[in-house]
Simulated scan of single mutants.
Amino acid sequence: MTSKAQVINCKAAVLWKEGTPLTVENITVDPPQEGEVRVRMVSAGLCASDAHFIWGWETDIILDFEGNPIVLGHEGAGVVESVGPGVTSVSVGDHVILLWTPDCGQCALCSHPKTNLCLSDDFVSVMYHKNKETRLKINGKPLLSFTGTATFSEYSVVRETQIAKVNPKANLKSACVIGCAVGTGYGSAVNIAKVHPGSKCAVWGLGAIGLSALLGCKQAGAETIIGVDINSDKESIAKQFGCTRFINPKTLGKN
């Protein structure tokens, strides 16, 4: 059963102003319209791109929230709760991950083998839906969706071009990182650095992106994969992802 025609009441972590803490609020989520999908979120990842706005750090991502509160989050995994007219790639009940950048599959960049920065939308326009509407609201007023995904909400409405169906056996509690961290790290090794069999590689910083880069190096056949991090506790998991030698700069030369 779906609640396709109903407004959903749920909770979300809301950013009222850059540089201020998130607050958990009661919000409403409208039904999906044409070409849109409403998702019940199972998990969400916290990326530095989200944290920069919470902490108020300078970033190369320039967004104008126009005085509106916003729901951050662009790494998410969940279950399709309802779909709008014209949606064909997913159905109610499908397990999905959310994508921070749209993929129309038709524009020049989506069709090009070297890039996927879709021309259909940009960072600013995806915060809104058609006619600058918002599907999320708080106290009846507009609530923006960061990168069009707003994964820090229990429910979110996204464009069909920002969703991908995954194997129902996939663990939705951890699949959220595929939408950003895994693709960024793995792609950096395989598509940008073009690691090849026999390569000698080093990866600095072994968070979700760094671990994914290690995996990319391993899958590409690298001979030596050095993982560098100031937290020695990461050595064990780094080696599970393909690291052949771990270095902590803080302890280098002390042993």
Rank of each mutant, 00 (worst) to 15 (best):
P32G: 12
Q106H: 12
D50Y: 04
P69R: 03
V29L: 08
L109F: 08
V29W: 02
L109Q: 11
S49Y: 00
D64C: 10
G93A: 10
V87K: 05
Q33R: 15
G67F: 06
T101I: 14
D50C: 10
C107P: 11
G35W: 03
E34K: 14
P102S: 13
L98A: 08
E66T: 11
I54D: 04
H52Y: 04
I70V: 15
D103S: 13
C47Y: 01
W16R: 13
G78A: 09
G105F: 04
L99D: 02
E58T: 14
G45H: 00
T20V: 14
V24H: 01
G84Y: 06
W57D: 14
F53D: 08
E75W: 01
T23W: 05
V39K: 01
P69M: 07
G76K: 00
C110S: 07
P21I: 15
L98H: 05
W57M: 11
P113F: 08
K17E: 15
D94F: 00
G105Q: 03
V90T: 07
V92G: 07
E36Y: 08
V90Y: 04
G45F: 00
W57G: 09
G76S: 04
H74E: 03
L22I: 12
G93D: 06
I54L: 09
V87C: 08
T59W: 02
P31T: 09
G67W: 02
H95A: 12
D50N: 09
V14Q: 05
I97W: 01
E34C: 08
V71Q: 02
Q106K: 15
T28Q: 14
E75D: 07
E34M: 11
G35V: 10
D64G: 09
Q106A: 14
V39E: 01
T101F: 09
Q33W: 08
L22F: 06
L63V: 11
M41R: 00
I97Q: 00
G19L: 09
V96R: 04
P21C: 14
I27D: 01
A48Q: 12
V92N: 09
T28K: 13
T20M: 13
W16T: 11
E25M: 12
K17W: 04
A13F: 10
V79T: 11
D64A: 07
G105R: 03
D30S: 14
P69W: 01
A48K: 10
G45M: 03
L22W: 03
